[in-house]
């Protein structure tokens, strides 16, 4: 459970570097769920609304997703982005990776789609998507009861989080399905790493923890992803990423269950 591919392309133009990261994540359910897979997330109204559609909802097959109980208030930025923007599916779809700036505005890094109105992706009950929207910030969205809802990510102390998303995985941990996301940078933790996690199908909002970083380690803001994995560890699962920094340092971050996530760079022998 919890496989995925993360690709990245780099292009320089007129002295500026553009990094595009594209994620593909997947999850395989341990058991077959009735109606599983017969759901789809879509962005409508020129990017102003996020909907979850299900064929079994005969009278009203598509329902508007709420962001923290309210409507999405970020206006779409038509030429480059939509808000909400589906960041990455958890179930066999494709998404765009975006970042948020210091004001909480979402910006697409790459992988623009020509027709955002028809951008859809499959999903299954109990597993959600990650999206930027609401009043800003990264949200985790899933079906709750009969209503799709997005909950904003926060730190353990309730602070909002932001940053560039670098990896998303779904994994089993102590008998529960969890969805995790690694972010770099952000308003709360400039230049550092944080890992957000949520229990699939649960009512608790996703919480983010800052990674412990070795003293003297350079800022990871300019990190470039090399790979990401879910690693089994005696019944638990770790969300692992490998990255490189400009100049040639390689590093590794790991988030496992309730442990504090850690990042470390390879030391020169």
């Amino acid at each position: 459970m919890g496989f995925g591919v993360m690709s990245e392309t780099q292009a320089s133009y007129a002295g500026s570097l553009t990094v595009s990261r594209t994620g593909v994540a997947g999850a395989s359910a341990a058991e077959v769920q009735p109606g599983g897979g017969d759901y789809v997330w879509r962005i409508v109204d020129a990017g102003a609304r996020l909907e979850l559609c299900h064929a079994g909802w005969a009278t009203r097959p598509c329902r508007t997703t709420l962001f923290d109980g309210g409507p999405n208030t970020i206006a779409p930025f038509l030429r480059f982005s939509t808000n909400p923007t589906i960041v990455d599916p958890v179930n066999l779809g494709r998404g765009q990776v975006v970042s948020v700036d210091a004001n909480g505005n979402g910006w697409v890094f790459g992988g623009l789609k020509a027709d955002l109105d028809k951008f859809t992706m499959p999903a299954t009950p109990g597993s959600g998507v990650w999206a930027f929207g609401g009043s800003g910030g990264l949200h985790h969205c899933q079906l709750e009861g009969e209503r799709p809802n997005c909950r904003v990510t926060r730190t353990a102390t309730g602070e909002p989080t932001a940053g560039v998303l670098v990896s998303i995985k779904t994994y089993a941990d102590e008998g529960q399905t969890r969805e995790g996301a690694w972010l770099v940078g952000g308003t709360a933790l400039a230049g550092g790493m944080q890992h957000c996690e949520v229990k699939s199908g649960g009512a608790d909002p996703p919480t983010c923890k800052a990674a412990q970083i070795t003293p003297g380690q350079p800022s990871l803001w300019a990190m470039s992803l090399l790979s990401s994995h879910v690693v089994a560890d005696r019944g638990r699962s770790a969300h692992v990423i490998w990255f490189q920094l400009p100049g040639g340092s390689i590093g590794r971050c790991q988030a496992r269950g309730g442990d504090a996530p850690v990042c470390d760079v390879v030391r020169k022998d």
């Binding site: 690693v231 560890d233 005696r234 019944g235 400009p246 100049g247 390689i250």
Partner: peptide
């Protein structure tokens, strides 16, 4: 500015329900 290119990345079994990346 990034000198490394990923050739392969995977997990390997190193014990009962234990993997290494």
């Amino acid at each position: 500015i990034y000198p490394y290119v990923t050739m392969s990345s995977h997990t390997i079994a190193v014990g009962d329900k234990q993997e290494a990346d």
